[in-house]
Simulated scan of single mutants.
Amino acid sequence: MDCEVNSEGMNKREGEGCPRKNADAVQDRDASANPSSPIIAVFKVFQQELDTKHDKYERLVKISRDVTIESKRTIFLLHRVTSVPNAEDILNEADVKLDAVRQKIGLIAEELRGEDIYQFHRAFTAGIQEYVEAVSFLHYIRHRSLISLEEINARLVFMRTEKVDPKGSDEALPLGAQVLTFHVTPSDYLLGVADLTGELMRMCISSVGNGDIDTPFQLSQFLRQIHDGFSYIGNTGPYEVSKKLHTLRQSLGKVEDACYALRVRGSEIPKHMLADVFSSRTTLLDPEEGVV
């Protein structure tokens, strides 16, 4: 028996098992939908909110990508301090680059004004971790210590000028100053410090190649302290820490192996050949060997 359809496009005998013509029914309902319906109005608001959130997320991803690129360039620049006579020029140039990176982080702070940071955290976490790695690398080269989270956040305060609307006045709007702050989360700080250990291992290799036999021992002690600190965190920290802890142990093992080679055979090997001996030893070193 054919289905009888009324003027509103609905089946009269749906309850009796009569098949519906889904595609035609959907088209009929869409054509006859009332645009002033409160339900449609509510869903239009939801659509606008989701589009706005998606656009903000994409802008944050782009800014984070710029932060990552500039932070990596700063790290590459800092690796030159072991091979130049005047390291202060390199450090000053790195300061300028990091100031530019902080301005980009200020753009992230503007996007997050009035927002829940954890709704968009995945969009910019990679860039912030790279920034923490770069700024902590610079701090270690200058002070031979680890920068704290409070010191990092203290430099992420931005002044922004914007127009202030005087009530009941049509005159030109004056400019007002507003303070924006960006707080690096503890998890981003920990993950950035974990990545720092790889750069310190590379710094150790460069120092050995340049005949510097003091820096590797300083780095070995410093990396051991960082490793012990991460061991205390255990499973209570971010889940990414367990992945980076393996790389941290590899870096520590290579630095300790370099110190071993310098202590045992340093007096019998010319300084310009230490890098070759160290490289050949690290290629044969098991990742977990020598790491407690």
Rank of each mutant, 00 (worst) to 15 (best):
L112N: 00
R113I: 00
Y118G: 00
Y118V: 08
Y118E: 13
Q119M: 11
F120S: 03
F120N: 05
F120T: 01
F120G: 05
R122L: 08
R122Q: 09
A123D: 03
F124E: 04
T125V: 12
T125K: 14
I128P: 03
Q129G: 07
Y131I: 10
Y131H: 12
E133H: 06
A134E: 10
A134C: 08
A134M: 04
S136I: 04
F137G: 03
F137D: 02
F137T: 09
L138W: 05
H139I: 01
Y140C: 03
I141H: 06
I141W: 02
R144V: 05
R144G: 06
S145H: 11
E151Q: 15
E151A: 14
A154D: 15
A154F: 02
R155S: 15
R155G: 13
F158A: 01
F158K: 06
M159K: 13
M159I: 13
T161S: 10
E162H: 09
E162C: 00
P166K: 14
K167R: 10
K167C: 01
K167Q: 13
S169G: 00
S169Y: 14
S169W: 12
D170W: 04
E171P: 00
A172K: 12
L173N: 10
P174F: 07
P174S: 12
G176H: 07
A177V: 08
A177W: 07
Q178Y: 11
L180G: 00
F182E: 02
H183W: 09
H183L: 07
H183A: 13
H183Y: 10
V184Q: 02
T185F: 05
T185S: 15
P186C: 13
P186K: 11
S187Y: 09
D188L: 05
D188H: 02
Y189I: 07
